[in-house]
Design a protein around this nucleic acid. Structure first.
Lengths: 204, 204
DNA sequence: ATTTTTTTTAATCATTTGATTAAAAAAATC
DNA sequence: GATTTTTTTAATCAAATGATTAAAAAAAAT
């Protein structure tokens, strides 16, 4: 009989733990997560967690870095972009962000609430600050509307894009939108928000 | 010598505990809060917590109800309003909400993340659902823009108002805005957002 | 003043939880 | 195939934590 070639091998133990950690940490938050939850989710012995990653904290940091990169990465791409017009950039940012959030709807609330619960753990590490201030994007905003602080527009764009995902559970819990409707609305928003932003930039 | 009349008496023990609970729960979240933290913050013996409120959970629920009322109350007021025009309602909502959030900046992230971490604890209790669907506000939105799902506008208005407070810590941590600037921007937003919403409603 | 009730305290319990250890099992190396 | 190294397991530890208890202190009622 044909020798079974090792195909689609199981994830390594290390990766199984990380995968379980991503899931459980995101679902319950750092403080409410017990290392035993992660071990069980991974179907592995508890001690393996400390064997591969020294501690709950270290494992969490690993997961958290990934999540933060995912959450802030989309913005960074737009900021680095020196080619496109402001209008195109807004379109790109909105579309990319919504697509990412449709795949990871509870990413923002997770990251933001962990930062909030333990600000000390995440020192002003993000190079997002200067980047955002000195980006071509910020300059373009200033050119178009020198009377407006760029953050006013960034808050608004991000708010319109991200808030539905943060508030989602509440609105779904209240029976205001079901999951398929929500997805449809978010698709629609990819077109709506850029139009709205344009209208905002031309107002006042 | 004049008999000292009992003036500005200390808070009752019960109220001291609640006050401390509000502070600590909000700061660290339910799971990361130890009953000892609350007792210490209140300057009281640990056992008093269980004497006045049966358990950590019961005390938390009490605090949480208050916070949710504060967070959703502002919206309810607007929904019940049958007098004002859509335009005025938007102005009222934005102003009231921003004023409230300036006083309680970390209310939204707290409530939303606790709901997220433990959706089971908060059953579809909010009567906000039908209220919002059948409100005069929703009707007014539909009249003005029948082509738009009302939630598209509600998501946008709430997003523009609430998001800066949810994302605040990140932007401050990144050195993008300092506290006084933030407050100034939020004051400015009370005028900006209604204008923007008007522009949005007239766009497309 | 005495008794009764309410409030507060210190000490302690039982469980949970992150982490460790020593030994077994599996894999790799020689 | 024996030896060494890596991986996994079961058992256990020590600290933390929510809760209880019995007694003391304070306040209220009689």
């Amino acid at each position: 009989m044909a020798k079974r070639i090792k195909v689609a091998a199981d994830l390594s133990t290390e990766e199984k733990i990380k995968e379980a950690a991503r899931k459980v940490f995101q679902q319950k938050g750092y403080a409410a997560t017990r290392t035993r939850d992660i071990a069980e989710e991974a179907g592995l012995n508890l001690a393996l967690l400390n064997y591969y990653f020294r501690s709950k904290e270290k494992l969490f940091e690993l997961v958290m870095v990934e999540k933060m990169q995912k959450l802030f990465g989309v913005i960074a791409v737009i900021l680095y972009d020196t080619e496109n017009t402001l209008e195109t950039k807004v379109e790109l940012m909105v579309t990319n962000y919504i697509d990412m959030l449709l795949e990871h709807p509870d990413l923002p609330i997770f990251v933001l609430s962990e930062i909030r619960n333990n600000p000390g753990r995440f020192p002003g590490n993000l190079p997002l600050g200067d980047l955002m201030r000195n980006s071509r994007f910020a300059t373009q905003l200033r050119e178009k509307r020198p009377d407006l602080h760029p953050m006013q527009l960034i808050f608004s764009i991000l708010g319109m894009v991200v808030f539905p995902f943060i508030g989602g559970p509440v609105f779904e819990g209240a029976g205001l939108v079901d999951k398929p409707t929500f997805a449809r609305l978010m698709e629609e928003r990819k077109k709506l928000i850029p139009v709205w932003v344009k209208a905002m930039l031309e107002s006042g």
